[in-house]
Design a protein around this nucleic acid. Sequence first.
DNA 1: GTAACTGCAAAACTTTTGCAACCAG
DNA 2: CTGGTTGCAAAAGTTTTGCAGTTAC
Lengths: 142, 142
Amino acid sequence: MLEQNRVPYGVDKLRRAGLRPTQQRVALAELLFADGDRHITAESLYDEAVAKGVKVSLATVYNTLNQFKDAGLLREVVVRAGKSYFDTNTTTHHHFFDEQTGSIEDIDLDVDEEDLRELVKVPNGKCITAVDIVVRLRDERV
Amino acid sequence: MLEQNRVPYGVDKLRRAGLRPTQQRVALAELLFADGDRHITAESLYDEAVAKGVKVSLATVYNTLNQFKDAGLLREVVVRAGKSYFDTNTTTHHHFFDEQTGSIEDIDLDVDEEDLRELVKVPNGKCITAVDIVVRLRDERV
DNA sequence: GTAACTGCAAAACTTTTGCAACCAG
DNA sequence: CTGGTTGCAAAAGTTTTGCAGTTAC
């Protein structure tokens, strides 16, 4: 009975996504999805995993993040050339990006996605996969 | 008289931007600004320069693009992790990004920038440097 | 048992940097 | 001349890949 409570929360989530719940994937899923929305990079998640004693390699973190993204568990946020960010919130929303600290925050923005899509004249034969809004920030000069 | 017409268009532009009009900068400026708005990467501009017989190294193309950006002659467009795009149109506007071909197009989008800025609750002590909208495209499935 | 997955190291790619040679003013 | 600029190669940073060994089922 006690043992059952040890089954990590992430296992079901992985199975549902069609991913075999291996040690590394379960551990990373726990880190990612345990509490609320998170914005991470491969490097930051790897550091976190190592700090918590999870045995995983950086290459596996990269691979796992891409697998999670392909499975729809994560969303990639493109805010900076040369670095990949991932967001555990896969619903439609937008981001602040602090250019000085490199940190990402969700925007509490009430833009009607449908309105925006209708304003745009999509090229023939193409369809929209996503509309991303990034509001770039820096310190207010005093 | 005839000789005067040979002075490349880019020289003045560079001087005004505080950049010494060297051979490579002038040649790259000609490629970039000669005809209308362009979206390029370091690699694509380097290939183009080499194809036209311009003597320049890839490192110099990278350095030059960053100098032009810092001088306000170019704007960086972040649409894909791991690759830097630049836009010769430095006015406020937004972009289509074709995820399959990697090509960028300007959007004919009539979003009131001020409206958007007012909708967003900017964190304390921060100010907005830019609002970027990227509409991601792929082929319509038939 | 076996196919899927991981770890490691190496490779691939993009971008930056150090420094001797070069060139614009 | 002289300092800013360039070219080259090397380094740095991020991400992917190949393959032998391991693991989930």
